[in-house]
Design a protein around this nucleic acid. Structure first.
Lengths: 154, 154
DNA sequence: TAAGATTGTGGGTAGTTGTGGGTAATATCA
DNA sequence: TGATATTACCCACAACTACCCACAATCTTA
């Protein structure tokens, strides 16, 4: 069952094969609307993982980037680092995309890989690295959650 | 007789079968409005149980998550931990949903299972675990209820 | 109370999904 | 240009899931 178009939730464990391919969760593929042309866009995440957008979602980001002015140094840097590592990738008949070697390296991907739905994108993690990151996350100052409590009710 | 749309109250005892399915109380199914598409969303609860939302209720949460920015580390962590364990599940002709193995493990579900209405969601417990948790709850400092008294009239 | 409808539980099966590997087309480089 | 590496596309198969039917227990209603 798919919720909203182009949104992703849930956790899925897959394996990166010898050819650098990773399966995309069937549910995520089904969540894509047709104008995404079976294509995802991979790029560096802000944590040690790969971010994967639907084509449409990425086009939205491109639009935002265009609104930044190259007169500002910080804007130039931000646009450069965001656009630089982005790679569109169409999945094959079995539903796999090929991950560029530089991204495999960046996220230290090994055989065991975890894909996590982040609503408007997904993340690809080395399973072991994520466990480490999660432990650190627990050490985050809980007071920081107060800010969130004002925005979100669960 | 159903009270309000999309709200759940009461306690029901069911069994988890060998295929990981649990029946949803008929009353809860009837409480769903049509645009829920016979779908619930399961995820980790804050206690050792599974939380089950109606599709609509979950979509509200998704909306909140989308308002958070991935530039903030704490926001990323929160979105990840919230979206990660969520799984939409449409009930079959008999009214059962399939619980993902990871959640069965998280809540230590056994054959005997208790479903509890929590108004805007429900909880699925291992019957024995709930008894234990209940005993501990009795030991809560009753002074803590003072805080609640300011928010709630019963 | 009896007949019918609804509810909860078990299990079979066809279709889907994830993974490995082969081969032909394309790109790279000396 | 020709040898080599890389990529895109194809097939095969095991494991899993969604969907279907059956039936006993319970509830409803006349």
């Amino acid at each position: 069952m798919t919720l909203t178009k182009n949104t992703f939730i849930g956790e899925y464990s897959y394996s990166l094969d010898s050819k650098g391919r990773i399966n995309m969760p069937a549910k995520f593929r089904q969540a894509l609307s047709k104008d995404n042309k079976n294509t995802f866009v991979t790029t560096r995440g802000m944590d040690a993982c790969i971010w994967v957008y639907s084509l449409n979602q990425w086009l939205e980001i491109e639009k935002s980037l265009m609104s930044l002015s190259s007169l500002s140094k910080i804007h130039r840097t931000f646009v450069r680092n965001t656009a630089r590592y982005a790679t569109p990738s169409t999945y094959d008949k079995q539903g796999r995309i090929t991950i560029p070697p530089s991204l495999i390296d960046y996220a230290s991907l090994d055989k065991d890989v975890l894909i996590i739905g982040m609503v408007n994108k997904m993340e690809i993690w080395n399973t072991k690295n994520l466990e480490k990151a999660e432990k650190e996350a627990l050490e985050i100052d809980l007071a920081a959650y107060d800010e969130l409590a004002e925005k979100i009710t669960i």
